[in-house]
């Protein structure tokens, strides 16, 4: 199988289209978003003052952040009512379980808030030390953190979908599919080799988003190295299984998959509320894979909880195994390919 991986890698780095999706598109998105958010994040002009009603924590250990004022509420319920009445941006309840955030209607402020709370290292509410360490966090440079995760999720699904489906399409177009299939290598091993050859691509996609956003725009993901590795692993394996699923789809579609897959993935991303909360459909959007992956990532980056990431990895591995076995069987059984 090594020769298939090698061949696919050569094709990847020589093909402008796939190189674009793997390297340039993520990097470009980081640049554009990074720059845009840098401007957007001017605290005075765009976001405005954030008015937080909080409960359950000692006032002295709250971080001092320009533009964010903390007002102690009598109860969480009362704070929520204030939010409903637009008297406060959000209500926060600090407790042993973590931080509960009740957000208002201003989506920009909400995003900023999420960044703030990600910054306050939520994992350890009962440890005052953590708060002290993160004291000079401002919300004006961390909106990218929020978007970066959304962005990676998008790239992983988009890139995986397009490259997964177009691999078979391209092979068929070049005529190389028949040529490969007539070799004495079993069809199943050829198919597995192809799925495996998505590995470098999937890794590159995530690296090309995470690295520049960290190095150039100072983006923050998880707070620990282990957390970041976990995050990377999740996106990586989600990427491969997306490739695998769409390679399976690609076995059946005879038209250029970019035409079909691109709109489909965009629709998927939109419906899962990745681009705008407005298209969010309760009950439906929640179960869409991009949404689940994004949520798992936020759980990790904002709240320091890794369970959902681990589940996402397990589910993705399962999907990967299932789809590639299914693909191998179908590919082997097809008389005419």
């Amino acid at each position: 199988m090594i020769y298939i991986i090698k061949k696919q890698f050569l094709i990847l780095i020589r093909d402008k289209g796939s190189l674009f999706f793997t390297v340039l598109f993520p990097a470009l998105l980081v640049m554009i978003l990074g720059n845009m958010l840098d401007k957007l994040d001017n605290p005075d002009s765009v976001i405005g003052d954030i008015n937080l009603q909080y409960i359950g924590i000692n006032t002295k250990i709250l971080p001092k952040i320009d533009g964010v004022s903390f007002i102690e509420a009598s109860s969480f319920e009362a704070a929520k009512i204030a939010v409903e009445a637009d008297a406060a941006t959000a209500a926060v309840q600090f407790s042993e379980r973590g931080i509960e955030l009740y957000q208002g209607r201003d989506s920009i402020k909400n995003r900023a808030l999420e960044s703030v709370f990600r910054g306050i290292s939520i994992g350890a509410v009962n440890s005052e030390k953590t708060f002290v360490q993160t004291k000079n966090l401002g919300y004006n440079r961390t909106m990218l953190d929020y978007y970066a995760v959304t962005m990676i999720a998008m790239i992983v699904f988009m890139g995986g979908g397009v490259s997964g489906a177009s691999t078979v399409f391209e092979e068929r177009k070049n005529g190389t599919l028949s040529r490969t299939a007539m070799s004495p290598k079993s069809r199943a091993s050829l198919y597995f080799g192809t799925v495996l050859s998505f590995l470098p691509q999937s890794a590159l996609q995530v690296i090309c988003t995470m690295l520049p956003s960290i190095l150039i725009f100072n983006a923050h993901y998880a707070n620990t190295i282990a957390g970041n590795l976990l995050l990377f692993s999740m996106f990586f394996i989600v990427g491969i299984s997306t490739c695998s699923v769409f390679a399976l789809v690609g076995l059946f579609i005879k038209i250029n998959p970019t035409m079909v897959i691109m709109p489909a993935v965009w629709a998927l991303m939109f419906l899962s509320g990745s681009f705008a909360q407005d298209v969010y459909i309760t009950g439906f959007s929640d179960i869409l894979p991009p949404r689940l992956v994004q949520n798992a990532a936020f759980e990790l980056t904002i709240f320091g909880r890794y369970e959902k990431c681990v589940s996402a990895i397990i589910v993705s591995a399962f999907v990967l195994a299932l789809s590639s076995v299914l693909g191998a069987i179908i590919f082997s059984r097809k008389a005419k390919i």
């Binding site: 061949k7 050569l10 094709i11 020589r14 005529g175 040529r179 007539m182 004495p184 290598k185």
Partner: peptide, 27 residues
Amino acid sequence: IGLVPQEIALYPTLSAYENVAFFASLY
């Protein structure tokens, strides 16, 4: 069997060497 198909079946972005090497390695 070695087939020389009627329609040219090559990887356009691979070199002559890489194309031949890939197919030969399948054998």
